[in-house]
């Protein structure tokens, strides 16, 4: 949530999404591609560390779980039920992937909302970058393709012809279904990126209102500033909900797509 006061004295709500290399700008490279360790990478690592610490609590493996272990088991059980409900008993095989996906996105979203600006740090939500969400979406899509073609071979294409399609309609329906199928990775990646970006921009714009109205005078500060601040509190709560829902939607859609690949229709 870093603020940058531009030349005109305006607050740039997009600056929070700027990627700043922390180290390795010059030396870290693979095959000519620069892979500098950025603030984005730092928050990815932070997400992994938090998730790993969370999971450690679930590894006590006691017969009667404590609170922490019960919390971890609730999360794995949630994803396990999601896959069993959407894919069937075979869905259990995909629990490791969908659980990783869900928890990784969920913690990334929530960590990005932490009010660390109060202590001078700049939280960064890497799920607000389509370069990151796109990789996750392409990964899910690739798994669907691999599972689909591996299990059903070319029969997988029957996914694009729903049952009961009249024969003359098959070419058109096939095309439409194929396009809607190919759009999946884009919609999957863009949905998360847009939801995160929009929420953070909205919060930053309202925060800019609070600062600019207060700078304009006590009267503006008490009217525009206070009401904007009240709105921010509500929207912050809403954003936490969005953070959870977007992670859930990503996991849910992935499991639905896996269901298509496993069971065809």
């Amino acid at each position: 949530m870093g603020f940058r006061v531009a030349e005109s004295g305006k607050i740039d709500p997009m600056h929070q999404f700027a990627i700043e290399p922390l180290f390795g700008t010059d030396q870290l490279a693979i095959g000519g591609y620069n892979i500098a360790f950025t603030n984005s990478a730092l928050w990815m690592v932070a997400t992994v560390v938090v998730l790993w610490i969370f999971m450690i609590g679930g590894m006590k493996r006691e017969l009667v779980p404590g609170r922490w272990q019960a919390a971890v088991e609730t999360m794995t059980g949630f994803i396990s039920n999601l896959l069993t409900a959407n894919v069937g008993p075979e869905g259990k095989r995909y629990v490791p992937y969908v659980f990783s996906l869900f928890m990784f996105i969920l913690l990334a979203n929530l960590l990005g909302l932490l009010p660390l600006g109060l202590v001078g740090l700049h939280p960064f939500t890497f799920t607000s970058h389509f370069t990151a969400t796109g990789v996750l979406a392409v990964m899910s899509f690739a798994i669907v393709l691999i599972v689909g073609f591996w299990r059903h071979g070319l029969h997988f294409f029957s996914l694009f012809v729903p049952h009961g399609t009249p024969v003359p309609m098959i070419p058109f329906i096939f095309l439409i279904e194929l396009v809607s199928f190919m759009v999946r990775p884009f919609s999957l990646g863009l949905r998360l990126f847009v939801a995160m970006t929009a929420g953070h921009v909205l919060l930053k714009v309202l925060a800019g209102f609070v600062i600019n109205s207060t700078n304009a005078g006590a009267g503006f500060g008490l009217t525009v500033g206070l009401s904007s601040f009240a709105l921010m509190i509500g929207i912050s709560a809403l954003e936490m909900l969005v953070a959870v829902i977007q992670a859930y939607v990503f996991a849910l859609l992935t499991s639905l797509y896996i269901n298509d690949a496993v069971n065809l229709h």
Binding site: I19, P21, I30, Y33, N34, I35, A36, F37, T38, S40, A41, M44, V45, F126, H129, T131, A132, V135, L136
Partner: peptide
């Protein structure tokens, strides 16, 4: 940044 983003992700 895309290479760094994809690599670290």
């Amino acid at each position: 940044t895309y290479a760094s983003q994809i690599f670290w992700l």
